[in-house]
Nucleic acid binder design. Structure first.
Lengths: 216, 216
DNA sequence: AACCGCTCGTGAAACATTTCACAAATGCTC
DNA sequence: GAGCATTTGTGAAATGTTTCACGAGCGGTT
């Protein structure tokens, strides 16, 4: 069903297309052209068609794409037709915001446990969950059959925690700690680094006028 | 001082290099090779040298880079040798976590106001700030001389808010709302979409074994 | 002061991604 | 059912990014 290697940029766009397809779906639209989708997603129609073409031909020439059918295809391609069991490692404010974040749940990501080192936080109730001692990490990963970890800790303990997660069987990690995690082959890591985002904005602000003029 | 167009990927790596340089600085290291920096940042030495070469020659052949000097250069390149005045638009849990996030402050980003629509939240004290009515957006942007907005709202109101921000003079936005914002030329937008990150992980999990085997 | 081991800076080559442009397919109209 | 207006799917071209490979410069050693 699929080709050698798909660019990360393509996969990200597919996720974005899916979001807009579901919006259109909710608005009762049945059919959509690559042009309309591209406009919404901030890209070009050729890009949309090329991205989809890696996985098959889902459109009708002269007409466009069936909104429901394409949404279903994209959910299938992205692996969103199942649920994932997520462990949150770290119980700071960002972790709290993420646990509440409805987008995760709607997309099939269920937080099944929250771990923390700080004794003051262990035992707190978070929605239906109780914050557990990070010492029980291995036990929790196994008992809860965790698919995916979200790492929301300071930089320091991150590598040690990811080692333990991997040893316990976790094979996918969303990492908010500002370190480059070392993991064995076969384990997927995605990094989100808010400071980097701000700093690229800072760069853009500083260099904004470097189109034409250039002076000291 | 600078070339035509620098790739976003390069700028992001510069921000990452800077983080590790500052770590090494704190550990008392004086000199660092492109190889050592690359290892820490998860890339290659050639990449490090190429990234830096767009902006000048900062190293000493045979030796490597002076940690302090290179950190200073990177801060200058990234525009981090000044402070930015940030307005937070939206006062949900994620906004709360971001306001607390020490990384922002350390890097020179000062949150000077928090705006919100929900009357229940207006008037709350957040650290040294009071959550204000979003109706005062224009007044606050001007009085506080805001450089940069962080948009942490649902998708629906995002475009309208960004229009008002831009009209009031804001020229850089970090957007957490899951929409593709339309802005005029000269306004910088960076999108952070946590759902997209999770979905690319989901894709990676699903397609992990597509290296060799391929069956229906 | 000549040599040696190391590491930078950088064109050129390799690789990856996006854009172009057009044939083929579809529905609609007459 | 022929003609027309659309819109897809896709090789090929253009563009962008990373990797390679090597000349040049630096510090230390004899």
């Amino acid at each position: 069903m699929l080709p050698r290697k798909i660019a990360d940029s393509t996969v990200r766009r597919l996720a974005i297309y899916l979001r807009f397809l579901e919006e259109f779906e909710a608005q009762g639209a049945d059919t959509l052209s690559s042009k309309a989708l591209a406009h919404r997603a901030g890209t070009t129609s050729a890009q949309v068609r090329k991205d989809l073409s890696f996985f098959g031909s889902f459109g009708k020439r002269g007409l466009g794409y069936d909104v429901h059918a394409l949404a279903r295809e994209l959910r299938d391609i992205l692996g969103l037709n199942r649920r994932y069991r997520v462990i949150m490692v770290g119980a700071g404010r960002l972790a709290g915001a993420l646990v509440q974040f409805s987008g995760f749940n709607e997309r099939g990501f269920d937080v099944v446990a929250v771990l923390e080192k700080d004794p003051a936080k262990i035992g707190q109730r978070w929605g239906g969950l109780v914050v557990e001692d990070v010492r029980h990490l291995e036990k929790v990963v196994k008992q809860q059959r965790v698919d995916l970890a979200i790492l929301v800790t300071p930089a320091d303990p991150a590598q040690g925690l990811v080692d333990r997660l991997v040893a316990a069987g976790v094979t996918a990690v969303l990492n908010f700690a500002p370190v480059q995690l070392q993991v064995p082959e076969g384990v997927e890591v995605k990094n989100v680094n808010l400071a980097v985002e701000l700093e690229t904005l800072s760069y853009a602000i500083k260099h904004r006028s470097d189109n034409r003029a250039e002076s000291a």
